[in-house]
Nucleic acid binder design. Structure first.
Length: 731
RNA sequence: GGGCGCUUAGCUCAGUUGGUUAGAGCGUUGCAUUCACAUUGCAAAGGUCACUGGUUCGAGUCCAGUAGCGCCCACCA
């Protein structure tokens, strides 16, 4: 063995593993049932960061352990086109290059992003290899693969046929910067101080006025009613007409329970196209209101011509100008008002509610043929422990989120994604077609309307919310190779970050059960966000980012893996620092040197070793430790499993067992002819004990530190012939 | 406005059905070491387990409350 462990040999070890074919469970001779993990596909829009290294480590620990422990272990890797996220990244890239995203033709943009994504994907694959990920590359999937799309289309069709997907015009979250709608999960709230204006709406009969509090005077031109609470002081005016202070149009005064009598003045202006509450109130009172709602804000966040004097202004400027124009209609001075404003989770642009025709998934309604809602399918599976969360507190989070679900807008007006498989027939030349409002859901391309035969059809332009397709990942990935679904589904563990519990995990559970009748995975293990030693989030601007590949280059991949797994329980944010990694690099060196000592002058024993009582106790302790490590891995308590292995190797095996053996191995008795025979046998037994324990320790440490253990294994004299790889040694 | 979580050694954290004297890593201090490893060993110092009360033979662990911190969710204009 070399005097030093050389981590630059890691690539060669990985290549040997990969070449062996044993990443593919089909090539493993195992009697046990499969053990399956579907890798959360990393977004192919950048390079891997420390969070990826964390999931690789945790999942690889399980896969390597079960592979050694008699199971057909499948870890199916993938890459995510990550629709909106990637488009945002690419948009930024173009901005840096001084090009305009919006001036590039859509087809060309798609091709450019595709090229960008595929290049990233390829790079990421090499990084996963560097981290030691023992996944089955022969089964790798990309979220835009044809067979994945087909599964996604067929799920959409099934949902549509079951009445769980519909198209509707209603207020949706619009990001003016990214020019797309977003789901309720893709917006966040920011605290903002705005002015609360008190505006008088005079009654047309001259009997005074109603006072309305609003933060949005710029939308007054789009007001079509005043709503008051039935028990408020304004109730006496219900049925009267109020005058719009800008347009002077007569608007009905109506009553609705949704109005809070204790907030503001207890009266609400109804602007259906710019506020979702207003839209709902309007929907309930269409008949009384009569006026048609209008929009005064365009898709770019500017006032449109129907806003009259405000036309062309940005919303913020329009607000100030409106306040100026309305000065005489104010009943009192505007107040500072502190409230939560919804913004785009990516760029922080204020979300403008706009009314648009979009596709929605019903979350809480039953299918039209009967059965359970998507929500109920998932809730029941979790409640009955068919899906178990680690740590269990996420079960509470999950249930609470499921409790108040609203329908999910899955339409996105972006280029980078899977087109919604819908055509619209403008001909509508027969009743069947008209009854479907010209909507045609089709898994394949169409030339003409299948209902009326008209060739006057056009394809839907919108693409899916990426989570709609990635929510189908566990079964979609297994459906493409024949036999896989049957063999590997449901999968065993879904290991991912808790930040995407709602975005992804919840959707996978719903769609998984909906499509296959079975849960997609039995256990969800959620890890946290990797933080620096001061518990700070890592970010480029703070300069505290640890690039896993760079530190692996310096300290070895094994050290990086160990520092990610030790010291953090499930669901908590792991803390990592270069000092910590250096500490585990020292451990790597310790392992290497201990092995070097054990293997030094080792020869096959000439007789059956006669172990002393102490030897037997040492061997027993090793067995016990190994069982303990296995137990903790199986409990998904990787933190302790790693710590036990670490502690045993260093402070029992190296510090005690090896140290105490030195006397016997180097005994002066060996030089004394009268004692020599006994001493030789004893030295041999000591050496034999050391090599047995070392050998078992390598197995025990392999799932955590695959490279150094495999590379020592290659020097072991007693390694079994077959394959000569620790990776597939029986645990 | 609702909910969840955290508070244990100087620092970062474990402590999974309540059970001897509360642990690890790093850091600190002292000593040792040409002998696999200074990327080392041995040893030491360091904790009223946030606070208050309760259940119990027994509480870091269970219950209630208080304080501080963090996070998630939410269409009161």
């Amino acid at each position: 063995m070399d005097i030093r462990y050389d981590q630059s040999g890691e690539d060669a070890i990985y290549a040997k593993w990969e070449k062996s074919g044993y990443f593919n469970p089909d090539n493993l001779e195992r009697k046990g049932k499969p053990f399956t993990i579907i890798m959360p596909p990393p977004n192919a829009n950048g390079s891997l960061h420390i969070g990826h290294a964390l999931f690789v480590t945790l999942q690889d620990i399980m896969i390597r352990y079960y592979r050694m422990n008699g199971r057909k272990a499948l870890w199916l890797p993938g890459a995510d086109h990550a629709g909106f996220e990637t488009q945002v990244v690419y948009n930024k890239k173009l901005e840096k290059e001084g090009r305009s995203f919006w001036e590039i033709p859509k087809d060309k943009l798609y091709e450019e992003i595709k090229e960008f994504t595929l290049a990233n994907k390829q790079y990421m694959e090499s990084q996963l290899r560097k981290l030691g990920a023992s996944c089955d590359w022969s089964r790798e999937k990309f979220t835009l693969d044809d067979d994945i799309r087909e599964v996604v289309y067929s799920t959409f069709k099934k949902l549509y046929d079951d009445g769980l997907i519909y198209r509707a015009e209603r207020p949706v979250n619009w990001c003016a910067k990214h020019q797309t709608t977003l789901s309720d999960l893709e917006i966040k709230y920011e605290e903002k101080v705005d002015k609360l204006y008190y505006v008088k709406y005079s009654l047309s009969n001259g009997n005074g006025f109603i006072e309305v509090a609003t933060t949005r005077p710029e939308t007054i031109a789009a007001d079509i009613a005043i709503a008051v609470h039935p028990k408020s002081k304004w109730a006496e005016f219900v049925g009267a007409k109020a005058l719009n202070p800008l347009t002077k149009k007569e608007m009905p005064v109506i009553t609705d329970d949704a109005v809070d009598p204790d907030f503001g003045t207890g009266a609400l202006k109804i602007t259906p196209y710019h506020d979702s509450t207003d839209f709902e109130i309007w929907s309930r009172h269409k008949k009384e209101i009569e006026l048609e709602p209008i929009s005064v804000i365009d898709r770019y966040g500017k006032m449109d011509p129907s806003a009259g004097a405000l036309s062309g202004l940005k919303v913020k400027d329009a607000r100030e100008k409106a306040a100026e124009i309305l000065k005489d209609s104010f009943s009192r001075e505007p107040e500072d008002y502190n409230h939560q404003v919804s913004v785009c989770y990516k760029c922080g642009t204020v979300i403008e509610p706009r009314v648009m025709k979009q596709w929605f998934v019903k979350m809480t309604d039953k299918p039209n043929k009967g059965g359970s809602s998507l929500r109920d399918l998932a809730v029941r599976a979790v409640r009955s422990k068919k899906v178990r969360f680690v740590s269990s507190r996420f079960e509470k989070e999950f249930m609470r989120w499921m409790a108040d679900l609203r329908d999910w807008n899955i339409s996105r007006q972006i280029v980078w994604g899977i087109k919604i498989p819908v055509w619209y027939c403008d001909g509508q030349d027969n009743d069947v077609c008209r009854s479907k409002e010209g909507i045609i859901v089709s898994e394949s391309k169409l030339q003409k309307c299948p209902y009326c035969g008209s060739e006057n059809i056009r394809a839907e332009n919108d693409v899916f919310d990426t989570w709609f397709s990635s929510g189908q990942w566990p079964f979609a990935t297994l459906m493409s190779k024949s036999g896989d679904f049957k063999k590997f589904y449901p999968t065993d563990v879904m290991e991912t970050g808790w930040d995407i519990l709602f975005f992804w995990v919840a959707r996978m559970i719903m769609f998984g059960i909906y499509r296959t009748g079975k849960v997609p995975f039995k256990t969800v293990y959620l890890h946290g966000l990797v933080r620096d030693k001061d518990r700070q989030k890592m970010s480029k601007s703070k300069g505290n980012v640890v690039n896993p590949l760079e530190v692996a280059e310096v300290y070895g991949t094994d050290a990086v893996r160990m520092s990610l797994v030790i010291g953090s329980a499930a669901g908590n944010d792991p803390v990592i620092s270069e000092d910590k990694i250096r500490g585990y690099r020292n451990f790597t060196t310790k392992i290497w040197n201990a092995a070097r000592f054990v293997l030094m002058d080792y020869a096959e024993p000439s007789r059956k070793p006669s172990f002393t009582a102490r030897d037997k106790a040492d061997l027993k302790e090793m067995e016990k430790t190994k069982k303990d490590v296995a137990k903790h891995i199986e409990k998904l308590d990787f933190n302790h499993a790693a710590e036990i292995a670490y502690h045993y190797f260093w402070h029992s095996f190296a510090d005690k067992v090896i140290e105490e053996s030195k006397e016997r191995i180097k005994s002066d008795d060996l030089k004394d002819p009268s004692r020599r025979k006994f001493a030789e046998a004893d030295a041999e037994a000591a050496k034999e004990k050391l090599i047995i324990i070392l050998s078992e320790c390598l197995k025990m440490l392999h799932p955590f530190m695959p490279f150094v253990t495999e590379s020592i294994w290659q020097n072991m004299p007693n390694k079994t012939k077959k394959g000569n790889m620790l990776m597939i040694e029986p645990w």
